[in-house]
Design a protein around this nucleic acid. Structure first.
Length: 414
RNA sequence: CGGGAGAUGUCAGAGUGGUCGAAUGUGCCGGUCUUGAAAACCGGUGAGGGUAAUACCUCCGGGGGUUCGAAUCCCCCUCUCCCGGCCA
């Protein structure tokens, strides 16, 4: 969540910053009004409560002294009755405020480029030269057919569209990749975790998926539980509502999980192949960092993801997202896009974000800074999306007859 | 899924209607003592909101209720532990 006090005290600046992310001033205006009316309602209610408390204390005193309490009781009863509407007002004000506040995205960093959508993203650099083919490279679903790697039809039969089955060598490749990614992350200092794939609503709110993006989540029937859309949710929220000591920062975590997404609003996009599935595997990095150190950690994460692609011999580029393409919780994001010769384009394979204190404020993750408690910075990034890495290997390592070579670094894993 | 017990500050653990944001111990921070450390002794030490700073408000698993007043009484829920069932 964004800092409401900051909005109140620096409205113009806040409004300008959020415009980059497409939030219009009227929404912020509304938020500001709701915030002041909450403060006003609370002030009224609290002074009534204070009065009630002091009268109640007197009550006890009078009784002990054997004094007459009928007059006091009348006063106290009247005040109590008067408190009911004040209470109602304060509760409504709070509800109204959070309904708006929780749906406002994070401030983008000042360094984030302006822009409306992915066309305005800024390429930072390319890594590795795409190989030149003496034949027309095939797309991964064509290669799948030749090698019998992916069973789309039976995946759909088991669940529904956008589910698939990996078979034989493809399945073993997936397992190898997961292990390879985790090992690479561990070498960079990320501690490995195996976490629940189902989390409750509080945690989803902590990282920003709820309440606004509930439509993208698979919910467990009759339970306050959801299938996780990314390991970012459980890893970050491990420290939900905790106060850390400064010396344990930064916490660097990694974990493999399947991810479940409804892909609402993606109808018609990437319907062929396994680029966009309702269930996919991913190895994730999450960091909880001191606010002054989160930029360093961010660099480490970006470099690590890029190094993994390089080790696999996969050409890729780093792209800085513009304001309009930035995710809800992110203050800054760098995407890694891998070269797909079959598609003849770069496609997203990793997304690394610094959310600053946005998630920390929602999830109440703090650290002791001397005597004070301060919000941490949280960061997350894929290292990497497993399914898309398989696609990238298929297309980049294909031979003219459709067979696929396995990258050198993976040999010991298969 | 059925039966029983419980949920209080870092942890342990008192507290059954007002003087309780909460005894005591422990941990942590600071000090005295010491060449230094330990021990001993002294002091400090929960979270959120509010304020210029005080006041002040909220929080004893969560929600509701009784009462002038609730950690304490009542109801619902969640979780933990023990016993049984089921099961990788």
């Amino acid at each position: 969540m964004i800092d409401l006090k900051y909005i109140q005290n620096n409205f113009e600046e806040a409004s300008l910053r959020l415009q980059k992310k497409g939030v219009d001033t009227s929404t912020l205006e509304k938020l500001k009004i709701l915030f002041s009316s909450l403060k006003e309602a609370n002030a009224t209610l609290e002074s009534m409560k204070a009065e009630q408390n002091s009268m109640s204390k007197l009550f006890g005193q009078y009784k002990r002294e054997g004094k007459d309490i009928s007059e006091l009781k009348a006063k106290v009863d009247a005040n109590k009755e008067a408190m009911v509407p004040a209470q109602e007002k304060a509760r409504n004000a709070e509800e109204a405020l959070y309904a708006v506040a929780l749906a406002i995205p994070n401030f983008p960093d000042d360094s984030v480029p302006n822009g409306a959508d992915e066309d305005d993203n800024v390429e930072i650099r390319k890594v590795l030269e795409p190989r030149s083919f003496e034949f027309k490279p095939k797309e991964h679903w064509e290669l799948s057919e030749i090698n019998g790697w992916i069973d789309f039809e039976r995946g759909v039969k088991l669940a529904k569209s956008r589910f698939a089955i990996l078979k034989g060598e493809a399945s073993r490749l997936e397992r190898a990749l997961i292990n390879f990614f985790l090992d690479m992350n561990r070498q960079k200092g990320f501690e490995e975790y195996s976490v629940p794939f189902i989390n409750n609503a509080t945690m989803l709110q902590g990282t920003g998926q709820l309440p606004k993006f509930g439509d993208d989540l698979f919910k467990i029937e009759d339970e306050d539980l959801y299938l996780i859309p990314t390991a970012e949710v459980p890893l970050t929220n491990m420290y939900n509502d905790e106060i850390l000591s400064e010396k344990e920062l930064p916490l660097l975590m990694t974990g493999y999980t399947p991810c479940f997404r409804k892909e609402a609003g993606s109808a018609g996009r990437d319907t062929r192949g396994i680029i966009r599935q309702h269930q996919f595997n991913k190895v994730e990095m999450v960091a909880i960092a001191h606010p002054d150190k989160s930029d360093e950690v961010f660099e480490l994460m970006v470099q690590n993801a890029s190094d993994i692609l390089t080790a696999l011999g996969l050409p890729h580029r780093l792209v800085e997202l513009c304001g309009g393409d930035l995710g809800f919780s992110a203050a800054t994001t760098i995407d890694l896009e891998v070269w797909l010769p079959g598609q003849n384009q770069y496609r997203e394979i990793s997304s690394i974000s610094n959310t600053r204190d946005f998630q920390a404020r929602r999830a109440k993750i703090r650290f002791k800074d001397g005597k004070k408690n301060r919000l941490v910075h949280t960061l997350n990034g894929s290292s990497l999306a497993v399914g898309r890495t398989i696609v990238a290997i298929m297309e980049n390592y294909q031979n003219e007859d459709g067979t696929i070579d396995i990258p050198e670094v993976l040999h010991k894993y298969m």
